[in-house]
Nucleic acid binder design. Structure first.
Lengths: 330, 330
DNA sequence: ATATTTCATGTAAATGTTATCATTCAAAAC
DNA sequence: GTTTTGAATGATAACATTTACATGAAATAT
């Protein structure tokens, strides 16, 4: 049988209130009795029941985190950032994979709310109007990670993907590239849109244009990159550079190119997006833009915890800096 | 103010008991009143309070998972396996990073127990006697993931790393390799020990021996691999093959070798361990052994949930199969 | 000496559920 | 017409805490 607060109270010959006081480090308890209670706790092996405690104090010290796929390197860094901050502030994390499925997202959110998470971090690649509405009405505090609430006012911490893509494209233009191909996300989404926009803007400013047929959609992973590059090469079009949405895609693309005898970067430049550790360990090393995914998670968590503790209700959006990192593939 | 069961009861003009019955899908409630209650739930926006429920029924439907580092590809797959199974059986996950720190492990465990997790999955690279004792006495059910309890009887699901290393080394010997180097974990641990043992066994059987000076310890990541290979090459010893404990290490090692003009696999073979998706996308593709990390997580979770639901207390250990996958680096 | 303050402790209500037991009421059985 | 059954519902005691309030004793002030 599990030992509870009344058991240690009996053991120490005090009331449960007193035990509760020493457990929660509330002063106003005599040093000597405190000693006795501590003794009793050790002897009985008492561990407070956080569930009962939460019910009473109406806080769980728990954050819910909705994330598309914890095993996807894109998201795992963010999760770690959240985790580390939670560790510092003594919060726990309930994890929920959503797999980009709206149904799973709704389900997850319900569960997190029912479990009385003090706050919830929503990480995804897009935010539908419908879900925005649902989040807005949630009883828990909400912060969006790497997702923008374009029509609403939910707090969020994100990256200016459009500028990042713009900068990277501009750099490419400066290097003399003129004929661009762009590998986009077949499932669309916020990030993909912004990158497309940024690239187009850079091209426009340089009086270049993007051949719509060279906007090639595919899956955002190595295989997808491999496939998209093959499609590009099959098209027979004249291209200087292929910009991708992600380093893994770039890796797959480079592989496909080299298998067909196309040298990167001499015959064709390739860029990644969202620096991944492996990108400087492959050959050629991938030129990309470094996005501080860990920081996004950490900042979002800190923000959320602040929202939970103070009732500082004003919603903020924080934009994190990125950094173009030029390596060998362009 | 949050709406609770009594609010719904008032709205629907029934007792809380009845509402609870319809929420929990207990029969014996009239179809018409059920309708009315459902209506009231929708109208009030009632969401059951899982905390209160858990307190009453003495179960949380929550699994705790202790994991060294969620952002480490080594562990992230396992986490995903756990997650998926939990999704199916309607459990939630409380995540706790331990960073290989015994102190953090103890802390984590306490928190998970206090939060009344029905079961806990411990993932690590080693199990100290002290912690084994602590786990054995924990009030929650415990399953070890990829960790062996050598002197105890805790349930676990693992891989026969020794055999895997043995098989891989044997394959190397068959290919004519004679002079082995081995890159081990500077921090030691269960996996590292077993691999060393397996390799030695294979060598012994072939009347070969392992030069103790060619057992090179280092960090288990790309940089570590890079450093260990440089150390090996600096030694000037005559070596055919370097076996590593992990694909990332192999990647770093290969890079170091090629930078020094040592061709892999022609001048020197390199093997990885624990197949990682990137290993077939780099050049040369890495020969390794594929360990079903996802499955370990999934099986551990399924086992744990079974232990929580039936009080099937007998402890089991399940060993998962591995597979040598020969690619280009050896 | 009495009144007042301060400190240490105890009592008990409240947190939002579930589940046991009791109750009601109608229909069926006698 | 009375008794029995059984289905539907309600009252309420847990579940393990925290905390506002009450109490009592000792110390201080009057």
């Amino acid at each position: 049988m599990k030992v509870k607060i009344v058991d240690v109270a009996k053991e120490a010959n005090v009331s449960v209130a007193t035990v509760s006081r020493v457990v929660n480090n509330i002063p106003l308890v005599n040093e000597e009795t405190k000693e006795r209670v501590l003794e009793a706790i050790k002897k009985t092996g008492y561990k407070p029941n956080a569930i009962a405690r939460s019910l009473k104090i109406q806080r769980t010290n728990t954050l819910g985190i909705m994330i598309p796929d914890i095993s996807n390197p894109l998201y795992t860094e963010m999760a770690r950032g959240v985790e580390d901050i939670c560790g510092i502030y003594n919060y726990n994390i309930i994890l929920s994979n959503t797999d980009f499925s709206p149904d799973k997202e709704k389900e997850s959110l319900d569960v997190l709310i029912e479990k009385q998470c003090d706050g919830i971090i929503y990480i995804g690649k897009d935010l539908t109007d419908e879900f925005q509405e649902i989040l807005k009405n949630a009883p828990s505090e909400i912060v969006l990670g790497n997702v923008m609430d374009e029509r609403g006012d939910l707090s969020s911490v994100l990256i200016d993907n459009e500028s990042a893509a713009y900068d990277l494209a501009k750099r490419a233009i400066e290097k003399g590239h003129k004929n661009f191909a762009l590998f986009t996300d077949r499932d669309g989404g916020f990030t993909s849109d912004k990158i497309l926009k940024g690239v187009k803007k850079a091209l426009n400013e340089a009086d270049l244009s993007l051949d719509e047929e060279l906007i090639i959609p595919g899956n955002i992973n190595v295989k997808g990159g491999y496939a998209m590059m093959n499609k590009l090469l099959d098209s027979g079009k004249d291209v200087d550079i292929a910009m991708t949405m992600n380093d893994q895609v770039a890796l797959g693309a480079i592989r496909a190119a080299e298998e067909r005898g196309v040298k990167v970067p001499d015959d064709l430049a390739v860029t990644g997006f969202n620096d991944y550790w492996l990108s400087e360990w492959v050959n050629p090393e991938i030129t990309t833009v470094k996005l501080p995914m860990y920081d996004i998670g950490a900042i979002a968590a800190r923000m959320l915890i602040k929202m939970c503790e103070a009732d500082e209700k004003e919603s903020k959006t924080i934009t994190c800096p990125y950094e173009i990192v030029e390596r060998q593939s362009m």
